[in-house]
Design a protein around this nucleic acid. Structure first.
Lengths: 219, 219
DNA sequence: GCCGTACCGTACCGTACGTTACGGCGGGTT
DNA sequence: AACCCGCCGTAACGTACGGTACGGTACGGC
């Protein structure tokens, strides 16, 4: 067995990870039009190896998407001292993170190819992106929401409904517009501003004893 | 000149419209994998005519998307007696319409192919869907919002911000999940319920003298 | 030194599909 | 009737690309 086999929980060798990184870069550059030949050339590997490692083109794409998903495992936030300030900070940080990811080249490219494949017979990529996108976001956020409810800061019946409302307030039309090719330059200050606005609006809808105005204007 | 040339504001003959309807149906069935041969067969026309009429494959797709966009010109709503009830009804109707369109097969298929093409060099389809999707929705809704502000029912500074918030409250994660292949059966009752919820939440955020609870729980 | 393994580079094959060309036909015009 | 025009159906062409095969190389094990 090779000494370089660092399979740490992904079943991939370093060489294969490099190949997937190359595929990821090509996916961002060329979208779904990337060819097996182009991946092999970019990664300086042979097509034979690509087929041996990943089976076929779809296997390569699937492995690439999963590899990227593995790299963005989120950072959980659950402090012990929990109050309105930490809840607000948690929501804002979450919203900002999500907007940053959404507006990144990699996310846009991956969602594009996954959406395309969801239309075909092969729903694999769509399911994977769904699992590591919206669903993963829900799994990460729901504990925070429930903690807010348990501590009397939030009031809602269905956690899922509350999450989806927060999702809507954060994402709005940003993702679909980016996917459709709209430029929509989202710089860091705009992201922070949007994160704060979405959080304030969410608290206005689901918060209990927030002493702010009823409508969601920030500052 | 032919007697059957009914070019009414689209520059298309009836025969060509039939062809585009066939292409639309194939787009829904097969997604972006539709071939020129399949369109010709479905529409019982020759490939030579397809190329003569639409130039090339992208021209056919573009014409198909525009043809569908032309068919869904919305119905504006601006009654003379304007009060909170009519504003609420207008927003609810709008939200329900939009959710119905979004969750339809045609919309999902068209957005899929447009998203795919936005990743390629050809941004045409993405721009068209953008123009006839989110942007058209904004153009249709903004007069209603501004009327609400003028009559003192709503309060906001930027119409665009208010619209985008309403968009987020209505659409939430529905569109991206559908595009990624999530089933998410949205029947008529669920659409009506979501439309009411989104409207109540929007009024809770931007309404002025609504005497309901601060949070957006419906009923 | 010899072998097996893993891999690179490249040439090759088969096919699908966009695009073009051609023969035939019906219907309107002169 | 003779002709033209638009269209259908189909055959043919060119190419791009997924997938495979093969020769060559480096390297670790015996």
């Amino acid at each position: 067995m090779h000494p370089t086999v660092d399979v740490s929980e992904s079943g991939l060798t370093e060489r294969q990870k490099d190949v997937l990184d190359a595929a990821l870069a090509l996916l961002v550059e060329a979208g779904d039009t990337l060819t097996m030949t182009s991946v092999a050339r970019r990664a300086s590997c042979s097509k034979e190896s690509l087929y041996k490692w990943f089976g076929d083109r779809d296997g390569l794409l699937t492995a690439t998407v999963q590899w990227q998903a593995l790299k963005v495992r989120g950072v959980p936030v659950d402090p012990e001292a929990f109050n309105l300030a930490s809840l607000t900070a948690g929501l804002e940080g979450f919203a900002a993170d999500w907007l940053r990811v959404l507006s990144g080249n990699i996310s846009v490219a991956l969602n594009r190819v996954a959406v395309g494949h969801a239309g075909s017979d092969k729903h694999d990529l769509g399911a994977i992106v769904l699992e590591n996108g919206p669903f993963a976001m829900a799994r990460r956020l729901k504990p925070l929401l429930q903690l807010g409810r348990e501590t009397g800061l939030l009031e809602f019946q269905e956690t899922d409904e509350a999450f989806r409302t927060f999702f809507g307030l954060v994402v709005r039309d940003v993702q679909i517009r980016l996917l459709l090719g709209d430029r929509l330059g989202l710089n860091e200050t705009a992201i922070d501003r949007d994160a704060r606005r979405a959080t304030q609006q969410f608290l206005a809808l689901y918060g209990i004893n927030t002493n702010q105005a009823r409508n969601g204007h920030q500052s």
